[in-house]
Simulated scan of single mutants.
Amino acid sequence: MAYALDTPSIHSLKSEARAMREAASGKGQQISHAAALESVARSHGYRDWNTARARLPERVGVPFDVGGRVRGTYLGQKFEGLVIGVQMLADMQHYQVTVKFDQPVDVVTSKLFSAFRHRVTATVDTSGVSPARTSDGQPHMRVTRA
C-alpha cells in the first residue's frame, strides 16, 4: 500500500496521545493512555485506535529514496544527481539528504575562484526545500525527484 508524505504513522499518533496526556495532566486532569489513543485516532478520522493501527504504517514515507535520481539547485546552482543517503530528523518534518552530483557544482559566486562540490549533505523539509538560507534569502537546497 502506498502512503502520502502527510500520512501520519503509528509512532506519530502515539506521540500525539502522550502529548495529550501531558497537557491534560498539566491542567489537573487524568486521561488514561487508552483513552488518549482512542481520541487521537478519532481526530484523524478513524473509528477507533484498532482501526487506525490496522491501516497506518509503522513509519512515515520519505520524499527521497537512496538510489533515486533527483534534480534541483544547491546554493543557486542547478544540479542533477543520485541520492546516496537519507535520514529523518527527530522532528519528523525534516530529512538529511546526501546527493552525489552528476557534474560537480561550483558553490562560489565569485569570478576570481571556484570551489566545486561533488557531493553534499543538506537538511530539507518534506517538500525538498532547505530551511537554511543564503544571505539573499534563497534556500541552500531545493531538490525534487527527477
Rank of each mutant, 00 (worst) to 15 (best):
G45A: 01
P139Q: 01
T51K: 15
S32M: 05
A36W: 04
H94A: 09
Q138E: 15
A35K: 05
R117L: 12
A122M: 03
A54W: 01
A23I: 12
P8L: 00
R119F: 07
S32F: 09
T109F: 15
K27H: 05
T134H: 08
M88C: 13
H140G: 00
A41T: 14
K78S: 12
S130V: 03
V124R: 04
V60C: 02
R21Q: 05
W49V: 03
F79C: 08
Y46C: 00
Y95A: 09
S127G: 09
D6G: 14
Y95M: 10
V124K: 05
L89H: 09
H44I: 10
S127R: 07
Q138F: 01
Y3F: 10
S114C: 09
Q87H: 13
H140E: 02
E38G: 15
V129E: 07
D106V: 09
S110V: 01
A122N: 13
D136I: 05
Q77L: 10
G61S: 08
S39G: 05
P57T: 06
H118M: 15
G68M: 14
A4H: 05
S12F: 14
L89P: 11
R119E: 15
S32P: 01
Q30S: 13
P63F: 00
G45P: 06
V107E: 08
A23C: 08
F79W: 07
V120P: 04
V120K: 06
G137S: 05
S110F: 12
R69W: 12
A35M: 06
V40C: 00
V124G: 09
R55F: 03
Q29H: 09
F101W: 14
Y74P: 06
G137M: 11
D136S: 12
K100H: 15
V83D: 07
P57Y: 00
S15M: 14
T51I: 06
S9K: 00
K14C: 02
R59F: 04
G26E: 01
A17R: 03
D91M: 11
R21A: 02
T7I: 00
L89M: 08
G67R: 07
Q103R: 15
Y46N: 02
R119A: 08
S114P: 01
P104H: 11
T121A: 12
S43H: 06
G67V: 07
T73F: 08
V86R: 13
V83W: 04
M1L: 08
H11T: 08
G26K: 08
G72M: 00
Q93H: 13
T134Q: 12
M20I: 03
G68A: 06
Y95P: 05
Q96Y: 01
A90W: 11
A52N: 06
A2P: 15
D6Q: 04
S39P: 02
M1Q: 02
R69Y: 05
T73M: 10
L37Y: 07
A132N: 11
